[in-house]
Design a protein around this nucleic acid. Structure first.
Ligand SMILES: [Mn+2]
Ligand SMILES: [Mn+2]
Ligand SMILES: [Mn+2]
Ligand SMILES: [Mn+2]
Lengths: 218, 218
DNA sequence: AAAATAAATTAGGGACGCCTAAAAAACGAT
DNA sequence: ATCGTTTTTTAGGCGTCCCTAATTTATTTT
């Protein structure tokens, strides 16, 4: 049985490995709002449990066993987020912290039944894929909105590296998962983009917003 | 913010105070499957936080503050149990351990929304009352089935001091919350009782079972 | 009232998860 | 190649929560 702290470290390593070759001490510490020395301690401990390989000074990578655990945690987190939004009526900007706690409730039957209750969803409220019981992720070909050219028509598939503030801004602009929009203009000066949702009139989005939007062709 | 262990100790004290004047170290330890010396440590700590009063050698009583916390914990525990049984389809003998973990997820909005989602239930799957947001408990006048006399007709209101084995036995006999039955005979020899459910034929229940059944007049 | 027993507390210690400060290693820029 | 900066590790320590063993207090028996 893993502790909450062990689980959070494994999840942080997993997330960082999505971005790069190796998960570095500093980045793990930053994610978990802890100190590098604490992370080193934990990497040693998890390494001893064969959940990851720690190459001192060169970061950590998950073992197959560690990755399987990470995927289960991601599964739990995203299923609970889905439950909170779809059943309890939480806003998509309110669920992360709660799911961060709920993901540590360890009971296989609970997650199986929750998954079934929700109708085996493939994506969470932020558009992130939910691993199935075997840890398999549904992949899609998406690109970031900032890479799109004027004239393109796309659908919002996910919001990446979400923060509550970003999600509230999107809410305020009426943008959500599934919203279809066309790119009207891109301004080189500030990297902003003029877009027009399928329903509603056009408006502008800053560079800071558009690179968080993962879109797929409409 | 309280730790899981602190919360479990408060809940144990609360439960024991339902039975007696004071909650004793030994009984708390037994409930939490820990040692008396560990309990003493924790009682000191909680006493320092003004959540209970510890009279060395004479047990502990909750303060108003401690009792309010205990009631919120009981509320969370029983709401999650209700969710697990009514929404996820768990058996009433399977939910205690899971709820024991979920009750420690601390988020007021979560519990408010869960309560609403479940339709503000007043009783959990075992017939135990669910405190409302203010900690108020609905009281009923119930008695234990072993105190009933032949000829009485009663309804099962709750199962007290539940264990999974007891609940499975009741399941097997078709007895659940709300079942109406009449007392046919009581055998002084072994304390067993012959009962007849409203629908179905009569059978016998052992002393060990009937004193766990809280009933109200049908 | 003394002895035996039961219950609770104190003393001391281990594992864990976190910290700060110091030392070591790696990296980037000249 | 060396210097300064950044990153990581190591060393040492603290609070929590748990334990066993020893001691103290309370209760029950004789
Ligand atoms: Mn978490
Ligand atoms: Mn999410
Ligand atoms: Mn608990
Ligand atoms: Mn219950």
């Amino acid at each position: 049985m893993l502790t909450r702290s062990e689980e959070d470290h494994i999840k942080a390593v997993y997330a960082l490995l999505q971005e790069g070759e190796s998960a570095f001490t500093k980045d793990i510490a930053e994610r978990l709002r802890t100190k590098a020395s604490s992370v080193t301690d934990m990497l040693k401990k998890l390494s001893g449990k064969s959940l990851l390989k720690h190459e001192p000074y060169y970061g950590a990578k998950l073992t197959a066993k560690g990755q399987a655990i990470a995927l289960q945690l991601v599964r739990r987190h995203r299923l609970w987020e889905t439950f909170l939004v779809e059943r309890l009526g939480f806003g998509w900007d309110e669920v992360h912290e709660v799911a961060e706690q709920m993901e540590h409730v360890a009971n296989e039957k609970l997650i199986d039944k929750l998954d079934e209750y929700l109708g085996h969803p493939h994506f969470d409220p932020h558009g992130d894929p939910i691993p199935d019981k075997q840890g398999k992720l549904r992949t899609r070909k998406t690109k970031r909105l900032n890479t799109c050219k004027p004239g393109e028509s796309v659908r919002i598939a996910a919001v990446s590296e979400t923060t509550d503030g970003l999600l509230r801004l999107l809410d305020a602009k009426g943008l959500r998962i599934g919203t279809t929009l066309s790119v009207q203009d891109v301004h080189a000066f500030d990297g902003s983009m003029d877009i027009k949702p399928q329903r509603g009139s056009a408006f502008s989005l800053s560079k800071d917003v558009i690179h968080h939007l993962q879109v797929e062709n409409a």
